[in-house]
Nucleic acid binder design. Structure first.
Length: 248
DNA sequence: AAGCCAGTCAACCGCAGGGGT
DNA sequence: GACCCCTGCGGTTGACTGGCT
């Protein structure tokens, strides 16, 4: 006995939306909004679609206040940073980027950012400077390293959502001297440091099962005793949140 | 021109959890 | 407290596209 389906699958259309269906849903939402439930919306909007499908289509595609594609380097760096601390909490991460949907952020991670990070891990592993992945340029350019930076407290609690979206100013610029080995890594042999950057969260099963942990483990394994180098390289991707931000 | 392959992204699925009864 | 309904979320799938052979 499984859960009852949310709609009659034989009676609803599935697959890609036609322009006519888009128009019907857009027109209905702009006229009335979704004042009832999503389940009943298809009937009200005269659509042969499942309510969940309507919701997804509206939230991820038709909504007027969203952007598609064209992620900037700044957004990439923010995604890396938030992913390193939150794991695959796509809705949380998307909520911190202006007009981005969780589906878009998730797709962008899976198709671009994850691969870039994997490539970086491989490049670091082989110590091949020529194949090193360029780090997000705007960070280094716009945020010269301050002379006095406080390390993040470790561990960082699972945050609630910051009210406004993040900008670069919410992140610490990397500082080689301060990016020491992360504490409490679960899959790599890192330990030791009592404070430092928050790479441990990348490997923290509580917040990120099987997500960034693998990449972090790759870096740590490749780094051997050269943890400082790994940390320096990683810092090009993950920027610790400013500790003065209240994330709890 | 045809076939293959990898990348992209829209859409679906199942589950968790909140709220109402 | 138990049950049901609904929404939101994250993982996954599959259609589509463009590049390469």
């Amino acid at each position: 006995m499984g859960r009852a389906p949310c709609c009659d699958r034989a009676a609803v259309k599935r697959g890609p939306w036609s322009p006519e269906e888009d128009d019907a849903l857009r027109d209905y939402m702009q006229r009335y909004g979704n004042t009832g439930s999503w389940i009943t919306l298809p009937k009200r909007a005269r659509l042969r679609r499942c309510g969940k499908s309507c919701r997804l289509r509206w939230l991820n595609y038709l909504r007027p206040d969203i952007r598609h594609g064209g992620f900037t380097d700044e957004e990439d760096a923010i995604i890396y940073s938030l992913y390193s601390q939150l794991g695959s909490k796509w809705s949380l991460i998307a909520s911190q980027l202006e007009r981005r949907t969780d589906n878009d952020v998730k797709n962008h991670w899976n198709t671009k950012l994850k691969k870039r990070l994997a490539t970086a891990a491989a490049a670091f592993s082989s110590r091949s400077p020529s194949s090193m992945v360029p780090l997000p340029a705007p960070v280094a350019a716009a945020h010269p390293t301050p002379s006095t930076l406080l390390p993040l407290a470790v561990p960082v609690p699972v945050p609630t959502v910051k009210a406004e979206t993040y900008t670069y100013d919410d992140f610490l610029a990397p500082d080689d001297a301060l990016f020491v080995a992360a504490e409490g890594s679960t899959s790599a042999s890192l330990s030791a440091a009592s404070s430092g950057s928050n790479w441990s969260a990348v490997d923290n099963g509580a917040t990120n099962e099987g997500g960034g942990g693998g990449f972090f483990a790759d870096f740590c394994t490749a780094a051997g005793s050269d943890l400082a180098a790994a940390d320096q390289y990683l810092s090009g991707f993950f920027y610790p949140l400013d500790p003065t931000l209240s994330l709890v």
